[in-house]
Amino acid sequence: MTDALKRLSDAGVAIWLDDLSRKRITSGNLSELIDDQHVVGVTTNPSIFQKAISQGDGYDTQVTDLASRRVTVEEAIRMITTADVRDAADVLRPVFDKSGGTDGRVSIEVDPRLAHNTRATVAEAKQLAWLVDRPNTFIKIPATEAGLPAITEVIGRGISVNVTLIFSLERYRLVMDAYLAGLEKAKAAGLDLSKIHSVASFFVSRVDTEIDKRLDAIGTDEAKAAKGKAAVANARLAYQAYEEVFSSERWAALDKAHANKQRPLWASTGVKDPALPDTLYVDALVAPNTVNTMPEATLEAVGDHGEITGNTIAGTYEDAQAVIDGLAKFGISYDDVVDLLEREGVDKFEVSWTDLLKSTEAELKRLAPSEG
């Protein structure tokens, strides 16, 4: 291992792990990652929980108890996943306290089937916050059109939020607006703004996956030379938008009330194309007050050979804009790409949730006690 992860942390990037399982908690592995690899947070999603529950026997005791009570599969999932998030939050509590509440957080997602229902999303967020009952929790809400007012409402109630599934720069600005509106609502209600935190999860690798597929279909040398550039450019322009919004007069009024900036979080940072460097979406997105949530393979790759050379976003905005603008000459519509990615993102999370339901139902049946 090199000291790349330390350099990354020192550069102002919070290193989070995009994975969680009961075994990772009980074995002490999560604690080791915190102590040895500068991990200061955890994100989860339905796919992560589905994998965890379907592998190994770490959940057998709890699932047996749930089966004995004949709970619904939805209730079982909530009991299992919130238990993991609660325990992980306890492991990360010292980081939370040391950072003044900025890091040491664990994210748990609302049911993705509610992504287009504002009222249900708010209700689910309130329920999850109550179930986990830890101050160092983020409730994940997707940045759909219905999700935006839900973000404002949930933040306004003092619940910290991880906004997920952001692909477009326009939507990202609406997410920041929703966050500021929520803070203004919380302020009007007399809440302590210093206790409310948020991150905005801007997805990275999927942008290259979709755009590079279209560039490959064009097949010219010029098109092939443009591959592997759009995702980083998109994320860098997102950071530019972040700098603009959080230096505005509107923000200044909230800043005086001790509000916290909503940090950009780079999500989907595992490189999908083997032709690209496996640490690309970490090395190229180093800037203060950001988060990078990595699958374990990416975390290990960065620790082994990451090229962390300080801020790699400052001074790149003009070039980044040229990359995005240059897509049009290939007949690639940026708006079409990001709209597709959002729809696919919601669909993928719904599929993952269905898989989680099936896996959990199978475990409930397997471990159900015999009658009598």
Rank of each mutant, 00 (worst) to 15 (best):
K365A: 15
A67H: 12
V338A: 03
S194M: 06
P142N: 13
I196A: 04
L148Q: 13
D84Y: 06
A259S: 04
T64C: 02
A362R: 07
P46N: 09
R173L: 13
A189W: 04
I15P: 15
G147C: 11
G41D: 07
T72N: 10
T102Y: 05
K358D: 14
E361G: 15
V71P: 00
S47V: 12
G270Q: 04
A226G: 00
A287Q: 13
I139W: 05
A178S: 15
N260G: 08
T290R: 08
L299W: 03
K213E: 13
H116P: 06
V199N: 06
I166R: 04
R214A: 11
S198K: 06
M176G: 02
L66A: 08
K6G: 07
K6N: 10
N29C: 00
E153K: 14
V161L: 03
R171Y: 01
V282S: 09
G182R: 04
D283Y: 00
V39I: 08
D3T: 13
D208G: 02
A178C: 11
L285T: 10
H116M: 10
Q321M: 04
S268P: 12
E363N: 09
S359K: 14
R171L: 03
G372S: 10
T81F: 00
T298Y: 05
A89W: 01
K224L: 14
D283V: 06
A4N: 14
A150T: 02
R93D: 08
V110H: 02
L340W: 11
R93A: 13
T312H: 03
R78N: 12
V39G: 08
V282Y: 03
V232H: 12
D60G: 00
V73T: 15
L17P: 12
I308K: 06
P295H: 00
Q62G: 03
I151Y: 06
R70G: 05
D283T: 04
E75I: 05
R113W: 00
S54L: 07
T269S: 10
V337R: 09
I80A: 00
P142I: 09
R24S: 10
G101I: 02
K185S: 15
K140C: 03
N136E: 08
E32F: 07
R24N: 05
A186Q: 08
T290V: 08
T121L: 10
R236F: 03
D133S: 15
A322D: 13
I218E: 12
A89Y: 02
K213P: 02
R366C: 01
L299A: 01
T279D: 12
V199P: 12
G100K: 06
G326L: 13
V95H: 08
A226R: 14
D97F: 01
R366T: 10
D84H: 08
V207Q: 08
R250E: 08
A226S: 14
H197G: 01
L183W: 01
D10W: 07
A146P: 07
E109T: 06
T269A: 05
H258T: 11
A226N: 09
A123P: 00
E296I: 09
H116D: 15
V63T: 06
I151K: 10
K126G: 00
L5W: 01
L341H: 06
D325Y: 00
Y172A: 06
T164D: 05
G303T: 09
I25M: 05
V175K: 14
R263D: 00
I34Q: 12
T220R: 02
S205L: 11
G303E: 03
I34P: 01
K224D: 11
R157P: 01
A259F: 03
V122W: 01
A4Q: 11
A123K: 09
G158H: 04
V204R: 11
